[in-house]
Design a protein around this nucleic acid. Structure first.
Lengths: 345, 345
DNA sequence: CTGAAAGCGCTTACAG
DNA sequence: CTGAAAGCGCTTACAG
């Protein structure tokens, strides 16, 4: 019933060791033998048993997760989820270690990546879209290390896979929600103003969200005017200052979209101005804080990416790459979650 | 480094066979021995290796999925996803078969469940909330079969787990979207009317969605009036007739929520009346059809549950139950997806 | 009630 | 370049 490596060996007239060599592309087999084994495997429709393979391996798989250090709640959650996955996989022959680097420092990230050499079978990294980083990633890939980017991609690089959401689409979704929640506006009032706050315009995901947002606002909601983006550095005190200024300057503000972190600052500024009810506020990332404000009604919708899903997905994708299996594309697609008050998990 | 059953055996002064018996609660071990083995396992913080266990088992795990027969696109997708999961798991010592029964016939479903006896280790079933079904489910559970309900729950029963969304919360979410998308209404116009269509009020999920929807509409959007629910039997021709009637009777209709299937009928009726632009339409379940209407703008939002996730989750939960492991709660939580035009996968 | 031994389907040195 | 044998951490008859 089950076709094993034994059956293939018999069919090909070789030993199981040779079949193993061929199937796992290990060197030192005569081309003619490779042919015969491959033909036999094809003929029998052999499917390797990855459980048995993992069990038999002498070495564990070693993965490294490189995450930005000391930052916002989302990244802390992500790290916690990576550690939880590490804990679970430790019984399944996968060892995961977590390294931390400064997010904004491309050089430091590149150095860290290069220092890894080939001491890991797989690396998952919250990347930066920067030539130095791309180079470092490509270096790892060429050294035979499996590489995935996590949450933030480095598009030009040779990484095998990006585990994260489409941030442009996330920005478009935010715009759609904001525009529709604000609703139509009687023409005599003139265009309503919409505030846009980002952490840093050096972060690719922030820029992409902004781009998607402005695209849809312009196309679908011409009666709303998006104000020039302000940077809040993902720091809530800075974000609060920026928002206070925005509110003071803009009596006819009808909506705010915060592309990055620091939502606490916006809530404070809105409450100080007593405008938390009449301004539509779209934020990113479900945290205890945003959840609470969603329930209270100050935040109207949260766009989310599930850090638990991302952590598990990165590990699964790396494992599949190491074992030479395809991953289940559907299962590894990270959703752009939309949370309103009633569908938060 | 890795603690194995060997280590536990040595520590307890017994053989590995005895450790296996104790750890897997197999009968025929003296209580005193059980104590000793358990103490040893605790002391060493032994964690069994589920890969090795699966490999060593003589028998495969046998799971049965019971799905409603010949119904809507969602159920067809669900079946396809179950089959895809079955295909993948077949290499991992899990055999999944799919049975089909008539959804609306509690007796038939109960009979089917009872006929299963103990020929399966696990059963996943799209349930009906009916005493006969509950009894049959409890019978299976008592016979030692692991049981999960899928998509539609049977709350009073002893099933181990429900794989699906909270339908009341889904209805509340639909209401929130509809109410906010419609927006405020000048008082002189009087309350706007909202049409509510369900497949059948005998289906628990439909009733729950309706309940959640009406709850939020009443509480949050008093300027909107929800019309009495109409049944469309999840059949698009019937749904079209119902919608046409609704539209004819209700010139001031501002929104429609379809709790069940048959969205095609609503789109046709809206287009026939030329009102697809000014009526907010919230539907369930992403299909090629709803996706297209979302892009065209006739459907304003789709509330979704991911059939791929549900199929895989049911299989994983059953497998964990059979192997005596906890599942990862977070991973098995089925999301209430909200899809707008820009975040569809 | 308990244990010794074989075996699940692979991978890994070690020989040749 | 290829094969025989041991071993991964369990479970399973079979003996006793």
């Amino acid at each position: 019933m089950r076709i094993t490596i034994q059956d293939v060996a018999r069919e090909a007239g070789v030993s199981v060791a040779t079949v193993d060599r061929v199937l796992n592309r290990r060197p030192g087999v005569r081309p003619a033998t490779v042919q015969r084994v491959e033909a036999a495997a094809d003929k029998l429709a052999y499917q390797p048993d990855r459980l048995a393979a993992r069990l038999a391996r002498a070495r564990d798989y070693r993965f490294c997760f490189i995450l930005p250090k000391g930052t916002n709640t989302f990244m802390q959650n992500l790290q916690a989820e990576v550690e939880a996955a590490a804990q679970r996989l430790s019984v399944e022959r996968v060892r995961i270690s977590v390294h931390q680097v400064d997010v904004f420092d491309a050089q430091a990230l590149a150095d860290e990546l290069e220092s890894l050499g080939d001491s890991y079978d797989g690396v998952a990294v919250v990347a930066l879209d920067h030539p130095l980083v791309r180079e470092a990633l490509n270096g790892l890939v060429e050294a035979g290390v499996k590489v995935v980017t996590l949450v933030s991609d480095a598009p030009g690089s040779k990484r095998a896979h990006y585990v994260g959401i489409d941030n442009t689409a996330a920005g478009r979704t935010a715009a759609m929600l904001l525009g529709r929640f604000v609703g139509p506006r009687s023409p005599e009032k003139g265009p309503g103003k919409v505030g846009l706050i980002a952490g840093s315009l050096a972060l690719r995901d922030h820029v992409e969200r902004q781009f998607g947002f402005e695209q849809i606002m312009a196309r679908e909601f011409p009666h709303l005017e998006v104000l020039p983006v302000r940077e809040g550095r993902d720091d809530y005190e800075k974000v609060e200052a920026v928002t206070r200024a925005l509110l003071a300057e803009t009596p006819d503000m009808v909506g705010i979209y915060n592309v990055g972190a620091g939502n606490r600052g916006i809530v404070r500024a809105l409450e100080a101005a007593g405008r938390q009810r009449d301004i539509v506020f779209i934020a990113h990332d479900l945290t205890p804080f945003t959840r609470k404000q969603l329930v209270r009604g100050t935040i109207d919708a949260v766009i989310n990416q599930d850090p638990g899903h991302e952590a598990r997905s990165a590990a699964r994708v790396l494992l599949s790459a190491c074992e030479g299996f395809d991953f289940v594309a559907d299962q590894e697609r990270i959703r752009i979650d939309v949370f309103l008050r009633d569908n938060i998990p």
